[in-house]
Nucleic acid binder design. Sequence first.
DNA 1: ATGGTCGATAGTCGA
Length: 254
Amino acid sequence: MRIASWNVNSLRVRLQHVLDWVKENAPDVVCIQETKLVDDKFPVAELNEAGYEVVYHGQPTYNGVAILSRSAPHDVRKGMPAFEDDQARFIAATIDGIRVINLYVPNGQEVGSDKYEYKLRWLAHLRGVIEAELAAHPDLVVLGDFNIAPADEDVHDPEAWRGKILFSEPEKAALQALLDLGLHDSFRLFPQEPGTFSWWDYRAAGFRRNLGLRIDLVLVSDALKARCRESFIDKAPRKWERPSDHAPAVITLE
DNA sequence: ATGGTCGATAGTCGA
């Protein structure tokens, strides 16, 4: 079973990329962030035609998350439980017995800003949500655009980024608190090429110079760690014409 | 230190 996470930065613009990518890679589940679509505009027919069922949680202009799956999604949850949020950043579903939680974690903009405080508040609440989900679903995947680089090897220039947004200590501590519940960063379960990232700024030719960060993560529970056979980032779509600034992060489960 | 580029949308905001 293959599960992917991809921040597409507008599903309207990137629909053809998604269709091409799923045709090439045959994932069973694709979790999408930054659809930037209201639900009325979600391309249900096109994705059904490609062989996927869809659940989605959108809003005007910003954010928006969706799950595409070969098998039927069950127990769909849109938005974090018990958290008032006008931003569409959370969607969960159970697919083939695996609980899948798809996140678009707030960016935070700048350390100390109101958006940064919202990011930390959001992550603190998420911890309780994940704790409950883990208790209910031992086979759990938590994936998405975390907007946090876990460690120095996930940042092209850790000294320049240290303490900055996406790499500040409180953000990393919030991510570690999730891992401490019993989750594993699947990417680090396997040998990886140094300098592998999942996001490159459009500005300053970030991709060409590999000035990236690994902020798109696939976390797996203990039970799924035992079934995880590979975890990788597919840089290919980042080279396509008019790409998203993020590349897909992918795992394969036995 | 600043701004570079995208996408939404129609002057800026968010990333």
